[in-house]
Simulated scan of single mutants.
Amino acid sequence: MNTDRLESLSELTAKNCFEKLDLDSAGLGSEYSYPNLPLCIIDTVFSIGVSYASTRNTVDRFCRFLGAESTSESFSISSFLSLYHTYSPQRMAAEVFGNKQRTSTVNGILKAEAVMMFSEAVRAKDVEYLKDSSFLLNNEEFENV
C-alpha cells in the first residue's frame, strides 16, 4: 500500500471516529487512575498473560484486605513491603491477593513474589510514592535490574 493511500485511509478513519464516537464523554478506566504506586505494581505484574478481569479482581481483593489504607496516596512502597515481613509470597498469593498465578507456566515464580521483587527494585531507587515514579520512566539502569 502506498503512502498516499495510507494517509487518506487514516484521515477517513479519524473522520469516522469524530463523527460516530462520543469522544467528549470518553474517559480512562479505573486501572489508569490508581492512587498509589503499590496498586500500580500489583496491576502491572498480575496482568501478565491473563484477562484484565482477573487482574482487577486481584487488585480488589488486595484493597479489601488492606482497607482504607490501600486507597491512600500516602501508601508507600515501604509500607507495602512491610506486609511481606508478616506474609510470605506464598501467603500473600493465597490470603491477600487470592491469586496463585505464576509469571510463566514453565519455571515461573508466583506473581506475588514478582510484585515483591518489583517493589524492592523501586524502593532501591528511593522511589516510595506514585508522584515520584516518573524518575523510573526510560531509566535504563532501572529497566536492567
Rank of each mutant, 00 (worst) to 15 (best):
G67T: 09
M1D: 06
S78L: 06
Y34C: 01
V50M: 11
G29S: 13
D22T: 08
D24K: 10
I48W: 14
R61S: 06
S33P: 05
Y34N: 11
A124Y: 03
E140G: 01
N139K: 07
K20F: 15
Q90T: 09
D126I: 01
L23D: 03
L28R: 10
V106E: 11
D22K: 08
D22M: 04
A114N: 08
A26H: 05
G108V: 03
A121T: 13
R61N: 13
K100T: 14
E7H: 13
S51C: 01
A14I: 06
N57S: 14
G27K: 09
T71R: 09
L66Y: 15
N139Q: 09
M117T: 13
N99Y: 02
R102I: 10
F75Y: 15
C63A: 12
R64D: 12
F142W: 11
L136P: 07
S133Y: 04
T103W: 07
E31M: 07
L12E: 15
K131N: 09
A53V: 13
N144I: 10
G108A: 03
S47Y: 12
V122A: 02
E19T: 09
A26I: 08
L21Q: 09
D132A: 05
R61V: 04
V45G: 06
Y129V: 02
T58F: 04
A112M: 04
A93E: 03
R64F: 00
S133F: 08
E7W: 12
E69Q: 14
S76F: 06
L37D: 11
R56F: 15
E19D: 15
T58Q: 01
R56V: 09
L23Y: 12
S88G: 04
Y32M: 08
P35S: 13
A114H: 11
